[in-house]
Amino acid sequence: MLAELINPYHLQVASFILINIILGVSIYITLSTGQLSLANAGFMGIGAYTSALLTLNFDLPIIVGILAGTLMAGLFGIIIGIPTLRLQGVYLAIVTLGFGEVIRVIFVNWESLTKGAVGLSGIPHMGREILKTLKGFGFDPKVFGLQNNQFVFLTIFLLLLVITISIIMFFRRQNRSRVGRAFAAIKLDEKAAESMGINITYYKVLAFAQGALVAGFAGTLFAHVLAYISPADFAYHRAVEILIFAVFGGSEVIWGPVFGALFLTVMPEVLRFISEYRYMIYGLIIIIMMAVRPQGLIDVNILNWIKLKTSKRRQKHGTSSQKSM
């Protein structure tokens, strides 16, 4: 019964959705202080390459690689964040876009380490490694009536689901903490926030580093789910793709980029039946969206409306203090 319901294809798509959601969250964090950073693809690349190289060359367990890759990306986030955050608006976007390209060019040219444009293949696969370990303990997926590959993708999916939910929960909580309030204040008016005693540099670098950390984390997961990475994966296109998640879904609330990532990853798959025309439809949907709802699909009003709908039965209405941001 279970075995018939589990199709690795759907789980594979779901895994990419979850990774994209994490990437969407990473750009949301920097956007929530009003900074437009396009370096996320670069940080993702740093995370992916660090983890892949460590696990390939030193036979480290994947979990160590993932942690190291994430921290490395976070470290770069701090290093890059401190000088560049003196810039604002479009200037910051340009510099961070440049940073992403620099990272890609380094991956292309540092051939002795990264194998250049050919990319790294044979990266340990997360699900297969878990299966191998479990088999070492005498576990066999047949107990659940599952085939090996069904089990592999099910574990990846569940693992990513847990990770994604945790990340979203964390940032929702953070948004309602002192840090989140500071972010929101900076986003609304930097000067006013500073005069209220908020340490702007600290919070901006914090947001930038958090974004880098999360993007790097998504990168490590990407590397261990795909088992192959090349510099082209982390090029300018990826940066724009991540940005579109936020632009499409909306960047006011965390559910915006989450929804954007979900929708924009599912779309090309759903439209598979029209084959070569699917990206035209995809493009069309994005254009219509931007014309009709330039602030993105999901914003506070929509959330309140949904909340109102769901809570009407209990004769309550959402007040602004319970706004879930």
Partner: peptide
């Protein structure tokens, strides 16, 4: 199936075909 020249798309297409 279309892969759009991307690895992840190619992989999902392959999964669809195989499964």
């Amino acid at each position: 199936e279309d892969s759009a020249g991307k690895q992840d798309q190619a992989l999902t297409a392959a999964q669809k075909l195989m499964n």
